[in-house]
Design a protein around this nucleic acid. Structure first.
Length: 414
RNA sequence: GCGAGCAUAGCUCAGUUGGCAGAGCGUCAGAUUGUGGUUCUGAAUGUCGCGGGUUCGAGCCCCGUUGUUCGCCCCA
């Protein structure tokens, strides 16, 4: 039995690699325009980081992490905790009161694979650390919006909510649980479980009966402080003033414990059962929680596979088109020697070119040149060696020109 | 962790009540010996996912197993 790739992973073959490079290049350009700088962190971290950062009770930490070496280390399941760890470790807050960082990297979660869900997957994301200004929230959402629209994705909907701070939520939970306790038996088994572990997640339930019950439930927003609400209103106003289309959704909840106040998602209904293309929010307590000074921060992460999925469906991805400029065909040993030298000379000058390595007939070499979409072909045979000149053929129209200055062949490859 | 579907050539897939393993695309070669694309001719490539069972006979039926896809959960 040949060995296969691990479950939930994928190989990126050349055609796909080309598309991902295209996507990453575009993402980098936009991050750069918004003055975000790239940060890279190790593929694995101390397990403790994620336990403290994401929350021990979350599904990810409790059952989806790839942990090894006596539970000491874990392949990163998300990027915010590692970025904040580095922020604290290198005192980046001292270097500058506002750090704007972005990343593009792979992450690991031991989930059952599904449409748009993998065990090793890629995200790009940004973290803006140091500001609690509503304009920082707005910038983050506009940055995400610029990237998503920049890809030509049109039907993604932005949903925004605020979930307040821990104290505000405590008050809400009291009322919320009180209300739900009357319906406890009617709730779905999942929601009954959530009732104990993480009541906030019940707001997210897809179960129809759960949704009915939620219709008359207390709304979190009403339990938030005036300042929290005011801040949220400011963000919405700024977005409006800048032409960003969004919907507020008081049911929007996110999976990690570190979120406070603003949360947002970019949704699409074309991702199978998954619907989030991008998700993020404010996490004003995390830096402190991980041992740093109290520092407000906000960020987002976007699923690259999910974005590619939509772009593929909408024909927004480029086809690999980095073809060789020249194919050098040769006939016989002597000419092969000469051809190989010519190949090397041109490559040193930066010309993308190719020759035959299979000892094939001239006809086959021509076919090969055509197959790889070489723009030009030269045939090197005895005649060419004798006359020290070559016929340069343009494949698109079959036209040929005689070139005697073979040392500077690149000048004729227009 | 739970549920459902699928597994035949490199790719996409046919395969009849159980009776010789197939097509299209791709790959390779040739169409008078130094010029591609179009066309024509030909060729190679399969443990029918794997292991059992039923049967004179299994790609097809049954059981198990692995992989995969989709959904639940969760998330990007």
């Amino acid at each position: 039995m040949p060995i296969q790739k691990p479950k939930g992973t994928y190989d990126i073959l050349p055609e796909k690699a080309f598309q991902r490079n295209f996507l990453e290049k575009k993402v980098r350009e936009i991050f750069n325009t918004f003055n975000y700088s790239e940060i890279r962190t190790p593929a694995f971290e101390k397990t403790e980081l994620f336990k403290r950062g994401i929350g021990e009770e979350t599904d990810i930490v409790s059952k989806e992490m790839y942990t090894f070496k006596n539970d000491e280390f874990t392949l990163k399941p998300e990027m915010t905790a590692p970025v904040i760890r580095a922020y604290i470790e290198y005192n980046l807050g001292n270097e500058s009161p506002l750090q704007k960082l972005f990343y593009i990297c792979n992450m690991f979660r031991r989930e059952r694979p599904q449409a748009g869900r993998f065990r090793e997957f890629s995200q790009f994301g940004a973290e803006s650390i140091g500001s609690s200004d509503p304009y920082a929230d707005a910038e983050m959402i506009m940055l995400a919006d610029t990237i998503i629209r920049g890809f030509g994705i049109k039907d993604s909907v932005i949903k925004i909510n605020t979930i307040g701070g821990a104290e505000e939520r405590e008050i809400f939970f009291k009322e919320f649980k009180n209300y739900l306790s009357a319906y406890l038996n009617e709730l779905s088994p999942d929601s009954q479980r959530r009732f104990v572990i993480n009541p906030l997640r019940i707001l997210d339930s897809k179960n129809p009966r759960d949704r009915e019950i939620l219709n008359d439930a207390p709304v979190l927003y009403q339990f938030l402080n005036e300042s929290t609400k005011k801040n949220f209103e400011s963000i919405l106003l700024i977005l409006n003033e800048n032409g960003i289309m969004f919907e507020t959704d008081y049911m929007l909840v996110r999976g990690f414990d570190y979120y406070t106040s603003t949360t947002f998602e970019f949704l699409s209904d074309r991702l199978g059962a998954q619907n989030a293309l991008l998700g993020g929010g404010r996490y004003d307590m995390l830096v402190q929680q991980l041992g740093g000074k109290p520092t407000p921060a906000i960020g987002f992460a976007a699923g690259i596979e999910r974005i590619l999925m939509i772009m593929e469906a909408d024909n927004l991805l480029p086809v690999k088109n980095d073809f060789p400029k020249l194919f050098i065909a040769s006939i016989g040993e002597e000419s092969k020697k000469f051809s190989f030298k010519l190949l090397e000379t041109l490559r040193k000058k930066g010309v993308k070119c190719e020759t035959d390595f299979l000892g094939r007939s001239l006809k086959s070499q021509m076919k090969e040149a055509n197959r790889i979409n070489a723009e030009y072909v030269v045939v090197i045979g005895d005649e060419e060696l004798k006359s020290n000149s070559v016929m340069l053929k343009k494949m698109s129209d079959g036209s040929e020109v005689k070139v005697t200055d073979t040392d500077n062949l690149e000048n004729y490859l227009k």
